[in-house]
Design a protein around this nucleic acid. Sequence first.
DNA 1: ATGTCTTTGTGAACGCGTGCACAAAGATGG
DNA 2: CCATCTTTGTGCACGCGTTCACAAAGACAT
Lengths: 237, 237
Amino acid sequence: MATGRSHRPATRGRGIPEATVARLPLYLRALTALSERSVPTVSSEELAAAAGVNSAKLRKDFSYLGSYGTRGVGYDVEYLVYQISRELGLTQDWPVVIVGIGNLGAALANYGGFASRGFRVAALLDADAGLAGRLVAGLPVRHIDELESIVADNQVSIGVIATPAGAAQEVTDRLVAAGVTSILNFAPTVLSVPDGVDVRKVDLSIELQILAFHEQRKAGEDDRQEPDGDVPAVMPA
Amino acid sequence: MATGRSHRPATRGRGIPEATVARLPLYLRALTALSERSVPTVSSEELAAAAGVNSAKLRKDFSYLGSYGTRGVGYDVEYLVYQISRELGLTQDWPVVIVGIGNLGAALANYGGFASRGFRVAALLDADAGLAGRLVAGLPVRHIDELESIVADNQVSIGVIATPAGAAQEVTDRLVAAGVTSILNFAPTVLSVPDGVDVRKVDLSIELQILAFHEQRKAGEDDRQEPDGDVPAVMPA
DNA sequence: ATGTCTTTGTGAACGCGTGCACAAAGATGG
DNA sequence: CCATCTTTGTGCACGCGTTCACAAAGACAT
Ligand SMILES: NC(=O)c1ccc[n+]([C@@H]2O[C@H](COP(=O)([O-])OP(=O)(O)OC[C@H]3O[C@@H](n4cnc5c(N)ncnc54)[C@H](O)[C@@H]3O)[C@@H](O)[C@H]2O)c1
Ligand SMILES: NC(=O)c1ccc[n+]([C@@H]2O[C@H](COP(=O)([O-])OP(=O)(O)OC[C@H]3O[C@@H](n4cnc5c(N)ncnc54)[C@H](O)[C@@H]3O)[C@@H](O)[C@H]2O)c1
């Protein structure tokens, strides 16, 4: 596994910073709303406000894509929608499989935001044979044993995992072996994958704990109840 | 709104870096698993592997909490679980309300990971009068008009929004007015809140788009089908 | 054509986060 | 009590991301 750090001039032609990539969908959403209202152009200031970011940041982000603005006027909404869509790869169709059709998996299957951006649910998979054939969001749940053939037949490259944590690594291994190279993981586990496979995780529990941390700090600034004292002396040997 | 940037020595006493805070729940999860297996101590190397991070990073993270390790041995699992829990504010109970009990909201209500870390669902709220009284995960859905009294009576400081995007800002305003100061938002919208209120968002659609970007780049490295040429000339005036 | 006014695109400075590499701490064995 | 060996805690350097601030580009009016 070559680290490949030596060359790579930080920011180059196709080299869009990760932080910028993460914001492009945000801009796209704001632009789509403007497009639906038939707004022809927006300034970086307006668009930044709509997306909830700093305008200088937005301009720098766009500068990585090229010079698509017109000074004194702003950005052409339709053109920018197209450019960002193309950059994100949304001009093509992305078949997705969802594995684990329980509470969360079913909610995801019903989620309209999937189809709206070129993501098509190719199949719903579950290990529970009792679920097989049942319709969820208009699609039949299929047995996990069909995973390999479904991924191959539909050229699925993105998998969503909504199984219990204990099954997530096994499912991941099967997805990767079948040819999936991007995984969105909702199970609270660290997944290990080979190089070349991307994993992103969504973890509700972590988000809540981060909120709790800040919440506690806010409260502590007023109360200042226990500076340090009452820590149970559970010190190790 | 004072920016308050001038002083603030980057990292101080209670000043734990945000990136570290975001990793503490990860460490806590790994440590809890070790605790259940009655493992007494772990080295930074082992724990880092379990949490999927670099061991130096883990040690630096812990150094912000204090010196809880023993050189030559490692960290005492139970003690560390306690320290991290305390730091995250998980030694106390956090009542939470979930607003919008549709597909996603119901899945969240059913999620076991909530209660497991001191988060208690105080109420489920929905605007649909038809849902009122119906049991979801053992709790009755209550009408959104009860929001203010429920938040006040239960001292709720954390709210979860799972309504459609169009309703999210209005719900946010009501939550904030009622006293909620932390919001976890699942609706695909930018929320504006007053200073002192924290918002974290979970956005499935954005995650998928980020995956698609990298997926496209991977494919492009082999194919290199369209270098630039066939871009429709939709250039603005 | 010329001037004014708006807004982009970016150079530069700064701060945060990451990871290396190592000195010091302390456990453990003789 | 000393030597050895493991593992922590952290100084340091580096790179990424953010923000400021401004020159230049260009629209638009006269
Ligand atoms: N429900 C939530 O709001 C929520 C929130 C955050 C995270 N999560 C996580 O998402 C995951 C799913 O949550 P849920 O509430 O839907 O659980 P669930 O128990 O309702 O559903 C899990 C589904 O996965 C299936 N499954 C189990 N093993 C499988 C395997 N090896 N292959 C394929 N399918 C398998 C089960 O048959 C079941 O249908 C869990 O890891 C949970 O921790 C859930
Ligand atoms: N389902 C998913 O997997 C998923 C994934 C990502 C994001 N989201 C987002 O989460 C939100 C909910 O998704 P869903 O699939 O559960 O939708 P849903 O339509 O099933 O549920 C929405 C619920 O909110 C209630 N509601 C509407 N207006 C309200 C108001 N003003 N106050 C209180 N309740 C109100 C509705 O009565 C309904 O019960 C949406 O914004 C969606 O974009 C959903």
